[in-house]
Computed example of a mutant assay.
Amino acid sequence: MNVTPQQALAGTRRTALKLGLGAGYAAATLPIMAQSAIKTSADGLTAGEVMIDVNGFKMPAYRSQPAGKTGLPVVLVLSEIFGVHEYIADITRRLAHQGYLAIAPELFVRQGDAQSYGEMAKLISEVVSRKPDAEVLTDLDATVAWAAAHGGNTDRLAVTGFCWGGRQTWLYAMHSPKVKAAVAWYGRLEGQPTALQPHNPLEMAAQLKAPMLGLYGEADTGIPLDSLAKMKSALKQAADGGNAAAKDVEFVTYPEAPHAFHADYRPSYRKAAAEDGWKRMLAWFKAHGVG
């Protein structure tokens, strides 16, 4: 059997994912931890790696869902720039214990192994910046189709994401009419456009198709409050123009919280803000029929 370079990379990535999920974090390739990560049991769940067909390409993902259950509401979980490591996998298990089929696709698998980088700048330039937004949307559409065929009810579909995944959460909620609720954790709203990332959420506010909850830290030096103010203004203009989803958007900002305040494996973690945001996320899903 002939193996393409992309398939070989996917195989290497699957091995790395399994090793990473079994052994925890590699200190040399991820931000330094301030404390141990939260560990959520897989008892009562079907959890682990699955493969998703994206136009013939096999994309790995980590999926968690209540064992033996079908017709489950679905949550897409979009990772930070570090890919689907144990923190992201744990988030899917937390959601599964709430009754969801939660799935985190490995969106960087074609570009490289995000977990093999010890230097942030190289990770961004060699992997993250090379991921086309259009490809993300195709990957997520395929993930939704996979969920529908494996016990999920995608008429009850939500999406949430962190950092890079927070930006993609905004973009997917502007792309897919199937999304019923979306929660972006400190997702960037504006920035310098590139050929592969040509548009940012701020300029696409009028295309929003789902109710959005944005969770941000007031001490986030990369996403200033001015950026949120501009997004609120753009959404109000969209709502005044008749966009119903733009009328159902809420921002919560946490005083003194930095970027990545939910990432419990990093020094940026802020327990109170993280726990409050989690409760608000679950309430947002249920209030919009995803639960």
Rank of each mutant, 00 (worst) to 15 (best):
E86P: 13
D220P: 00
H262F: 11
E106H: 03
T12I: 14
K232H: 11
E275Y: 01
A147H: 08
F108D: 00
Y186D: 03
F162A: 03
G289Y: 09
H85A: 14
P267N: 07
G44E: 05
A219Y: 01
T92M: 01
G214L: 03
F162K: 03
G161N: 09
H259M: 08
A210P: 11
M1T: 15
A273T: 08
W185M: 12
H259Y: 09
R93V: 10
P5L: 14
L95T: 05
K18A: 15
A42R: 05
L215G: 07
A89V: 06
G48T: 08
E126V: 04
F251D: 00
Q207A: 14
W185S: 10
M204A: 09
T15A: 15
E250C: 05
K236Q: 12
Y186T: 09
Y172W: 06
R130Q: 15
K236F: 02
T169A: 12
A16S: 13
G118P: 12
Y265Q: 12
Q192N: 13
Q237G: 07
L157G: 01
I88N: 00
K286D: 13
V74T: 00
D240R: 04
L95C: 04
A16I: 04
H150A: 11
A219T: 02
A96C: 02
L17Q: 10
Y25L: 15
G48I: 08
H262A: 15
A246E: 05
Y117C: 09
E256S: 13
G289M: 12
A287I: 07
R63F: 01
Q115P: 03
G118T: 12
V179C: 14
A257W: 06
E190M: 04
D90V: 05
L9P: 04
A229R: 08
G217V: 00
P60K: 01
A8C: 01
G165I: 04
Y62T: 11
L30W: 09
W170A: 11
F82C: 06
A96L: 07
V3R: 11
P5I: 12
A37D: 11
H262K: 07
W284K: 06
A257V: 03
A10D: 01
Q192P: 03
G289N: 10
A245I: 01
E126M: 05
M120Y: 13
G241K: 10
V252P: 07
L171I: 13
T40V: 15
K122S: 13
A195P: 06
Y25D: 08
L196F: 05
A23G: 08
K39G: 11
Y100I: 04
G71L: 11
Y62I: 12
A274L: 07
S129F: 14
A134T: 07
G291I: 05
E80I: 11
M204R: 15
F108A: 05
N200E: 10
A234F: 03
L171N: 12
A23E: 12
M212Q: 02
D276G: 04
E49S: 06
P224I: 01
A229G: 10
A244K: 14
A148Q: 14
